[in-house]
């Protein structure tokens, strides 16, 4: 508790993340207007007391659209991390625990996956699966799976040779039980830390793919799509791109700050 108070950055980050989660799960409490119904008369208004983030070309309230977009952006990013951790952890566990040739082959595949820029990899996957939020999540997840596999494997290799694992073997514990009871719990922490860190990256990746038009179809108010939509009006209505972009920036920074605390960094 004391450490929290001496670190204002942590408090601000925590508040931002809590706010983002609130937006995700209860947008109706925060939105001031309907995100889909525009008032044509109010089109392209700059930020004001009535429309905090201004309005778009159809007169829709941008603030409410950002609020409703939180679910799409953040849930997609969360799903992406879950997909990445699941694939990476399984590959890493198998690779590290079995070792030998299996390890070699799996790790070379991981090398290839890591060598390809993850955004490109995600694009390939999305192109194969079709557009939409879920394909984007899977694409981004696969793009991140390589590093999860690496971290999991390194932990498993460390834990596998630990004395308590040999002790368990010498007691007659079967190897699946060793994997579940000893290897996995003792390897999990760094993987969890990386997963938390990856959430920020995933938000960015999901937004980027939506920006490019691979994500949720319009008129869904996904954050990346909002930024993309605003491009056409940059000269006349700067807020359409800049404000959603600023929201992405702030949330990603806050998530990163908290994730680094989980990872043990101060």
């Amino acid at each position: 508790m004391k450490t929290l108070l001496t670190r204002p950055g942590m408090i601000v980050s925590a508040l931002i993340v809590i706010a983002a989660l609130a937006l995700t799960f209860a947008p109706q409490l925060f939105a001031t207007h309907d995100p889909y119904e525009g008032i044509p008369a109010d089109q392209l208004q700059p930020p004001s007391a009535a429309h905090w983030f201004g309005t778009d070309a159809l007169g829709r309230d941008l603030y409410s659209r950002v609020v409703y977009g939180a679910f799409l952006s953040l849930a997609t990013a969360g799903l992406a991390v879950v997909v990445g951790v699941a694939i990476g952890a399984v590959v890493g566990l198998v690779s590290g625990f079995i070792g030998g040739r299996v390890d070699f082959v799996l790790m070379r595949i991981v090398d290839v996956v890591i060598a390809v820029p993850s955004i490109l990899l995600s694009l390939i996957v999305v192109a194969g699966l079709g557009f939409g939020a879920v394909p984007v999540a899977i694409g981004v997840g696969i793009g991140a799976a390589g590093s999860f596999a690496r971290v999991t494997r390194s932990q498993v290799v460390r834990v596998r040779t630990a004395e308590y694992v040999e002790a368990a073997r010498s007691m007659g514990v079967r190897w699946p039980a060793i994997l579940v009871r000893h290897v996995f719990p003792n390897s999990a922490r760094p993987v969890i830390a990386l997963a938390a860190l990856e959430v920020g990256t995933a938000i960015l990746a999901v937004s980027a793919l939506s920006f490019l038009g691979f994500g949720a179809a319009p008129p869904a108010p996904e954050w990346g799509a909002l930024v993309s939509y605003g491009r056409d009006f940059l000269a006349t209505a700067w807020w359409l791109s800049v404000l959603p972009g600023a929201v992405i920036l702030v949330v990603v920074l806050a998530v990163n700050r908290l994730a680094r605390a989980i990872g043990g960094e101060r």
Partner: peptide
């Protein structure tokens, strides 16, 4: 045949409680 190791800091799984550690052989069988 059971083994007791030299280093009591390494031979016990740090994530488990003492009870889980002691009863693990029973669980295994």
């Amino acid at each position: 045949v059971q083994v007791v190791y030299q280093n009591p800091f390494g031979s016990l799984d740090p994530t488990m409680t003492v009870e889980a550690i002691v009863s693990e052989p029973l669980t295994a069988f």
